[in-house]
Amino acid sequence: MTYNETEILIKKYLNGETTAEEEKLLAREVAREDVPDDWKVIAGMLGELTVDEALFDQMMAERKTKPRIVRLWPWVAAACVAALLIVFLGPPREETVSQPQIAKVECESHSDIQVEETEIKAVEVKATEPKEQDTGQSAVNPQQTRKKKHKASVSRRIAKEDQEAPALRPVEERDAIPYEDPQIQFAVQARTLRERGNRVIQRVSINGLPSNNYQLNDL
């Protein structure tokens, strides 16, 4: 309210024409600091009840219009702690095998031979006929000549086995043999792998294929 408006309201008050709401409004104005002396007298006449009621209503109105600041971080922190507690303190999951898992697949074709073929092919042995060499050279490298002969024999054998090996077919569901116990499944698979590995080793050692360790080859 402006100064003039307050003065008009004071005159209305002294004439007994103000309502309760107008008197509360007047009380808010005259109760401020640094007001004229006449206004202080009016404040005294209005009385502490009227002035305090006006201030009370003003404060309550300001609280309603003031936006409430809601802090979310305590709730987020509590939710994180609760989630962590549930994860770490919750009961362990019981792993139940609802369906028997597929343990191995037996194909009609010989899978061992397939594995050995890939092993041998990775070496890249080329079947070559021993060429006629000078007597001087053959005398100098008899070892190399023997190695070449071995390679040629191995490659012939592989080619023969390729012809003999039946055609591969894709794995079907009927090939699957389910296992009831996962431990037995694992043991069987491990044994199978071991056996394959032993066969590969035997094959390599029988055929005398050179290894990657060239120092051992000379021994």
């Binding site: 009840l49 009621e53 009370f56």
Partner: peptide, 9 residues
């Protein structure tokens, strides 16, 4: 009114 006065007091 008295209660409001006491609050402000």
């Amino acid at each position: 009114r008295v209660a409001k006065h006491c609050c402000m007091d």
